[in-house]
Amino acid sequence: MPADRPDGISRRDFLTVTGALTGAGLLAGKSSAEDGAKGKGPAGLGPEAVGYTLRVNGEDRAVSAEPRATLLDVLRNSLDLTGAKSACDRGECGACTVIVEGRSVYACMMLALQARGKEIRTVEGLSRGDTLHPVQAAFIEHDGYQCGFCTPGQVMSTVALLEKTPSPSPEGIRAGLCGNICRCAAYSGIFEAAAAAAKAK
């Protein structure tokens, strides 16, 4: 599967989501009634930053961000995890792919608030010290990149694919990576890397 959203909620559903979160009492210090009274709309959250915690690469990270901030915004701008890239900012290219609860996700299409309480994995969390993840090593060996801008997303999509389907067919690799665009078109190397990483496991 291409990178997709686990919960089917887009940032365009922002009001609904924040409303639900507020209603669930998950955001300290705010209530929809109060903010509604201040004329801030039905959701009542923001525009000020709110504080919460995200679990990223196995660590709890404190975040302060506007409710409208996407997961990509927060990873890149609040947590300095700049591996995931912003290239289209509307779920069309896959450069921002991260793994949330085991599934590949376009981080530009998920509100950071939606990712609370979930396991978020980014490209920065793949290697163990100097030891690369087999997918990372395979991308190097098979030259699965050129400029490298889409690479973190390609790597994360490949990791998610192989975790779900350890021995994909060549068609399965293409289908699994079809949510990621590489404008330099390093696809031959990317497919070879994915196949090699599957064998290496």
Binding site: R76, G83, V123, L132, F139, I140, Y145, T151
Partner: peptide
């Protein structure tokens, strides 16, 4: 031979203008 900057590119450490 693999690219010298390969490790930076696959780990997300490679810094682009956007970063």
């Amino acid at each position: 031979l693999p690219r010298l900057e390969g490790k930076d590119k696959v780990t997300g450490r490679a810094k682009y203008t956007a970063d």
